[in-house]
Computed example of a mutant assay.
Amino acid sequence: MPGKPSGLSLSPFDMPSPALAHFVRVAGSQSGQDRLFMVYQYAAYIAIAVLNSKRLRNKTRADVAIRIEKLRATISDARVLYRIFGIFPIIAWAQSLNDPARQPKDKQLLTLQRLQTWSMLLYYPLEHTYYLAGKGVFNISPQRIGKIAVWSCRFWAAYVVLQIFHIRRSFQLLRASRSALLRSTRERVRAGDAAPGVVEDERAQLAALATQEKNLKRDCWVQAGYLPLTAHWSIPGGILPNNVWVGVCGTIAGLAQLKGVWQATA
């Protein structure tokens, strides 16, 4: 008698696991891999601080903390390397904004997105330059590498600030769309129009608006994590007191993005 499908089962002798299949879809995508690595990269800062705390620290935990840090540094390095071709999707995005059929209909959103593409078009070459220079590919002094890294993060910070305004405008447009739809529904009800097709269409539109709102709220968490991070790296000496706060902010942004990838691959 066949058993019921399992949850997150790792046994090869069990029935197919829907949760494991879902995880494979996430981990098998480029965005999913990056988000999983990102969560580890930043959560590692918190784990290391806990293991090295006065209350818990001993020789064994200190050794574990060193191993966690080594893997964290490897993952951080790999994530920058994987972004080496990141500028090409940005160029494609910038080009799409010149197509009337694909660009946002709202002029504010269009302006914000155009500014965002410029910030990323400046961010990526600078990131690639300081990363490759740090590996010895380019002959640049350590002091200059540091300046390039700071300016790279400043353009990333600009993108984050613009994204916050983008979210704000998107919420305004969403509320206006919902109000218009509800107003249309009330007028239809007063007129006695209860055609099944119209009702189903309105329900579908409301569901789509609810999904947009949920995605915008999740993006708020992403930017809430990124804003202090990018500000920290954009100012020599930083603004966050220690790496624990870097870990907290990065983990918040990473988990919010990972949740989006998880839901998109459901």
Rank of each mutant, 00 (worst) to 15 (best):
N139D: 15
L115T: 03
W156G: 03
I164K: 03
T117D: 11
T117Y: 00
A149S: 15
L126I: 05
V161Y: 10
I140V: 15
Y131S: 09
F138H: 14
I167K: 02
L122D: 01
W118N: 04
G134H: 13
L132Y: 10
A158H: 06
K147I: 07
R144K: 14
V137T: 13
F138N: 12
Y123L: 12
P142D: 08
K147D: 11
C153Y: 14
G146H: 12
V160C: 06
W151V: 03
Q163L: 02
V137M: 10
Y159G: 04
F138R: 07
F165E: 04
R154V: 05
F155A: 09
Q113A: 08
A157Q: 00
K147E: 15
F155W: 12
V161L: 12
F165W: 10
R114M: 10
N139C: 04
V160A: 05
R168H: 10
V160F: 03
F155C: 08
L121K: 12
R168W: 10
Y130I: 03
H128Q: 15
Q143I: 01
L132E: 07
A158P: 01
L126E: 05
Y159I: 03
A158M: 14
L162S: 02
V161Q: 05
Y124G: 11
S119A: 15
K147S: 13
Q163I: 01
S119G: 05
F155P: 03
R168T: 07
T129A: 14
V137F: 14
C153V: 06
T129I: 13
G146M: 07
S141H: 09
S152T: 01
R154T: 09
I145Y: 05
M120Q: 15
P142V: 06
V150N: 01
V150D: 02
Q163M: 07
Q116C: 03
K135Y: 08
R144Q: 14
Q163V: 00
E127G: 08
F165N: 01
M120K: 15
Y130K: 08
F155E: 04
L162C: 02
I164S: 05
Y124E: 14
V150F: 02
L126C: 04
V160E: 01
I167Q: 00
A157P: 01
R144P: 06
R154L: 08
L122Q: 12
S152V: 05
I148A: 01
R114A: 04
H166W: 11
A133R: 07
A157V: 02
W156S: 06
G146C: 01
L162I: 00
A149C: 04
Y124N: 13
G136A: 08
W118E: 06
Y124Q: 14
F155L: 10
G134P: 07
H128E: 13
F155H: 12
S141T: 11
M120D: 12
W156E: 08
W156I: 01
K147L: 13
V137S: 06
V160Q: 02
